[in-house]
């Protein structure tokens, strides 16, 4: 059983991303959307936690672009996906957990 987790809160405001990373299993995917994409910026505490996480981390490109975050600002190990990639991730995993 693998899970797609989505996180839509800024890691500077809430601990959703951090808590999600520590509860995600190997084989799970974590997708940052909406204000969650701020957690993908390299050099942040949030991005540092990704290196020790078991799950793969993705970020939604449209939400990055909307917020003016250039692709060269994204931390290593994070994959940028579009809405089509979002759909693929939802289809590839057996359940979706949208962290609120």
């Amino acid at each position: 059983m693998s899970i797609l987790h989505t996180v839509n809160k800024s890691p500077f405001q809430k601990n959703d991303f951090s808590s999600c990373l520590s509860h995600a299993n190997a084989g799970d995917a974590v997708l940052l959307i909406e204000d969650g994409v701020y957690g993908a910026v390299s050099g942040t505490e949030a991005a540092k936690q990704i290196s020790s996480a078991e799950a793969s981390v993705y970020v939604l490109g449209g939400d990055l672009a909307a917020r003016g975050i250039a692709s060269d600002k994204i931390a290593d190990g994070i994959t940028v996906v579009g809405y089509d990639g979002f759909v693929d991730l939802a289809a590839e995993h057996q359940a979706v957990n949208s962290w609120l």
Binding site: M1, I3, S22, H23, A24, N25, D28, A95, L100
Partner: peptide, 18 residues
């Protein structure tokens, strides 16, 4: 523990988050 919780979550068919 947090690690045990991780396994419990991984064992579900449906998760609703609040």
């Amino acid at each position: 523990s947090r690690d045990e919780m991780k396994k419990v979550l991984g064992d579900q068919d449906v998760i609703m988050s609040f």
